[in-house]
Amino acid sequence: MNPEALGKVIFYGSSIALFLIGLYIILVKRNLIKLILGLTFIESGVNLFLVSIGYVWGRTAPILNKPELMETPSKLAVDPVPQALVLTAIVIGVAVTAMALAIAMLIYDKYGTLNISKIKELKW
């Protein structure tokens, strides 16, 4: 197997796998905390995918703390843009998870259960 195909299988494959595991949890599980965990799985799958898109063979992190890195940075360091965007996405993900957990706490307080199939108002 050539290196490019191997990298594709490992990085793209594992990000797709994380995404699908999250989707499966959301579709099948009935516990609200598990649903929120599924959301974070999807989020980390997408983040891993974005970071691995920015990788370039044989290059190092975009922190230019060595003389040779300072001279020709664009030939020695990976793409910083996906990393900066993922940094934003992680912070927003924390905010979303915190809000979802707060709503789960409210639901537990009102209905006494976290099982969504036992909450009558959610049925149609």
Partner: peptide
């Protein structure tokens, strides 16, 4: 494709970061 350069804006940031901002951490 995996492991190839994809954006040109990333290259610009890497080349200009020390000159324009003085920060060695490009991110």
């Amino acid at each position: 494709p995996f492991g190839t350069e994809k954006t040109t804006v990333g290259k610009y940031y890497l080349d200009k970061t020390i000159e324009e901002t003085g920060s060695v951490n490009t991110v």
